[in-house]
Design a protein around this nucleic acid. Sequence first.
DNA 1: GATGAATGAGCATTCATTCAT
DNA 2: CATGAATGAATGCTCATTCAT
Lengths: 208, 208, 208, 208
Amino acid sequence: MTARSRSIPTKRSSPGRHGDTTIAAGNKRAEIFDAAVALFLHRGYDATSMRDIAAAVGVMPASIYYHYESKEALLVAAVADGAGLLKASVDAATDSELDPWTQLERACAAHLTTLLHGPDVVRVLYFELQRRREGRVESDLLRIRREYENLFRDLIDALPIGDGVSRTHLRLTILGAMAWSPVWYRREGDSPTQIARALIALVRYGSG
Amino acid sequence: MTARSRSIPTKRSSPGRHGDTTIAAGNKRAEIFDAAVALFLHRGYDATSMRDIAAAVGVMPASIYYHYESKEALLVAAVADGAGLLKASVDAATDSELDPWTQLERACAAHLTTLLHGPDVVRVLYFELQRRREGRVESDLLRIRREYENLFRDLIDALPIGDGVSRTHLRLTILGAMAWSPVWYRREGDSPTQIARALIALVRYGSG
Amino acid sequence: MTARSRSIPTKRSSPGRHGDTTIAAGNKRAEIFDAAVALFLHRGYDATSMRDIAAAVGVMPASIYYHYESKEALLVAAVADGAGLLKASVDAATDSELDPWTQLERACAAHLTTLLHGPDVVRVLYFELQRRREGRVESDLLRIRREYENLFRDLIDALPIGDGVSRTHLRLTILGAMAWSPVWYRREGDSPTQIARALIALVRYGSG
Amino acid sequence: MTARSRSIPTKRSSPGRHGDTTIAAGNKRAEIFDAAVALFLHRGYDATSMRDIAAAVGVMPASIYYHYESKEALLVAAVADGAGLLKASVDAATDSELDPWTQLERACAAHLTTLLHGPDVVRVLYFELQRRREGRVESDLLRIRREYENLFRDLIDALPIGDGVSRTHLRLTILGAMAWSPVWYRREGDSPTQIARALIALVRYGSG
DNA sequence: GATGAATGAGCATTCATTCAT
DNA sequence: CATGAATGAATGCTCATTCAT
C-alpha cells in the first residue's frame, strides 16, 4: 500500500524517479510492480497470473511486457527491491553504534520493523526465500540469503558471550525467530521494536 | 481418506509397510502419495502438475483420480499425514516426563528430529503452512497450526520463568527457530537433538 | 486428399493400422495429421496455427496434444511420411531393372507421379525442404535430402555418358527440374510419366 | 515505393550508395530494407517479426512504420526489388546477341549469377515465389513469375530445335534447374557461368 | 523522424479434470 | 483398476500495429 516500487528498471533507465517528491511519469511501471507484489504476497508467485496482474492495474496483459520482460523478471525485481529495503534499514540502524548487544538489538528491530511494517515487497522476499526455484531467481535468492546470513554473523561474532554457547545456534535462533514472525505477527500485539527487545533479552539473559 | 504411507525414504520405494498389517494393498495409492509429496516438497504445490505426479509413479494422469479425488485432496492428505507424524512424535516424547524444561527440550528434540530427519511429508506441511490458501486446505492448515501452537503453549505455560519474561515471546522464539530450521539445516552439522538442547539452553540461561 | 496418415505414431504404438483395408480406430490421430498436412501445404507451416488444425478436425486445440506432442512433431511426422512415400515409390520403380537410362527414367516417373499426384504430404515435404529450420526438423530435412541426393547419384553414376559431361550437373538439372515441377505443374497438361520421359530424353539426346 | 538498397553485403553496412547520386538520404529506410531482406531470407517471412527487423537495425519497432506501411509492404518491396535486379541482369545479357543458343546461355548465366551471387533480396524473391500468399503479394509474385516465364519462353521459342522436342519441357527443365540451384549451390564449386554453360550444353547436345 | 506506451488478437502449450470403456 | 481420449479454461508470451508526443 505505502511503498512505491523502487526496483531497478528493467528496460532503459528509470523514466521519472518515484522516490520522494517527484511522482510524475514511470507511473505504469510502478503500478504494475506494486500490483504484482501484492498478488505474489497474497496468492504466491505460482498462483498469480500475468492476467491477474494486468487486471489489477487495469491494462492489457501484453502491456506488462513493455515494462518487464517476463513474469520471472517481476519476481526478480521484487526480490531485489525487498532485499534492498531490508539491507538499507539494517545498515541504517547499525551504522555507528558501539555496544554489540545494543547494535544487534537495533539491527533486529530494524529488520523486524521493515519486515512486519514495511511494504509488501519485503514479505514477498521472505516467503519466496524459502521455496527453491530455478535459474536467475534461485541464484538471486541464494545470494540475498547469504548476504543476510553474513550480516548477522558479523554482529553475532562481535558479541561477548559465554564459553559454552554456540554462536551458530544463537544466530540460527535469532534469524529463525525473526523469519517466522510474519506467520504469527498481528498488528494489535507488540511492536516490532518490542519483539526485538524481548528476543534479544531472551537469548542474552535467558528466562530461567 | 486419511493419508497412508509414512515411510521414511525420501525418494520412492517403500512398497508396503503402510498402515498396520497389510502389505500389498493400497500400493498404488501409497506410491502416488509419496510421489506427490516429494514433488510438492521440491517444487511446491502450485508448480507440481498431476502429470508430474503420474509420470513419477508411472501411471496415466487419469489413474490418480481413482485414488484421490483431486490435486487438493492430495495436499490435504499430505498435510494431515505430516501433522499426524509431528504430533505423534511430540506426544511420544512428552508422555510422562516431569521437569518442565526437560519436557520442553524433549518435545523440541522430537519435533526437530521428525521435521529434519522424518519423511518428506513433514516438510511439505511446514512449507505449505506459510502460504495462505483457500477452502479446505486453508482451514486444515490453520487448525493444525493452532493445535501445534497450543501444544507448545501448554509446555511453556508449565515453565517456571522469571517475572519480566513474556511467555508469548518465548514461544514465538522457540517455534520460529524450529520452523526456520529446514531452511538452514545441513545433515553434516549438529543433530536435531543437539539443536534442541542448544536452543533450550539458550532461551533458558541466555548467552550473555 | 487420398492418402491416410502413415506416419510412425508418436505416443504408444499404432492404435489400429490404417494401411489397406482396416480403417477402424486411430481415427482422430490420422484426421489431425491429414488436416495439418493440408494446412501446412496450402498456407505454410509458420502460417498454420494449432487452432486452425483443431478447427479443421473439429476438436479442441488441446486435444491435438494427446496425439502429437507439439506442432513441430506434426511437421516432423509429415516430413518423414512424405519422404517414406517418395522413397517407396522410387524403390519400387527401380527394383530389378537393367538398362541404366530406363531405370533412371522410371525413377523419375515414380518420383514425379508421387510428387505431383500423391497425397499432400509429399508436397509438404518438398516445400519445407527448402526453408531452413532449427532443431529436429532441420536435421530430419537435411538427412532426407541427402538420402535423395544419393539415390539419384547412384542411378546417374551408372549412366554411360559422354566424356565431356558432368554427372554433377546432370544430377542437378534432373533434380532441379523435378523439384520445381510442383510450381508449374497443371493437371491438364502432360502426365508425370510423360514429363519424366521428356526430361530424360532431353538430357540424354539433347534438343539441338 | 520502389525498393532501394541493392547493396551486395549480406549483413549490414552499405550506408549510402543507394539509388544514384544521393548518399546520405534514405539511410534508415535502406537499413531497414536490408535487415528485413536478410531476415526474410534466413528465417522466412512468416518467422520474421517486426521486432527482429527493428532490433537488427537498432531502432524501435514503431519506427519502421514511418518508412514502410506494413510488414507485407516490406515483402512487396523486396520482391519487386529482387525481380528488378534479375530482369535487369538478364536484359543486359541478352541485349543485342544473335545466335539463339548463345543468347539463352548468356541469359541463364546472368540469371544464375544474379541469383547465386547477387544480394539477398534476389533469393528472397525466389523462395517466396513458391509459397502461395494472399492479396497484394500474391498478385505481385504471380506477375513476376509470368514475366519471367515469358522472357525465357521467347528465348526458347527462338531456338532451332528438333521436331520431337517439346519447348515446354525444355523451358520447364531449364527454369527448374536454375530455380533449384540456390538449394544446392556451394560457392566452392562451379561458378554460375559454368553452371549455365553445362546446363545449356546438356539440354542442347544431351549426355548419351 | 523517431519513440514510449499501449493494444487486442493470437500464439503454442499446459492445466486439472472427466468419462466411457 | 486403469486408461485412452478428450475437454475448456487458463497459462506466459509474441504479434503487427497504432498514436500522441
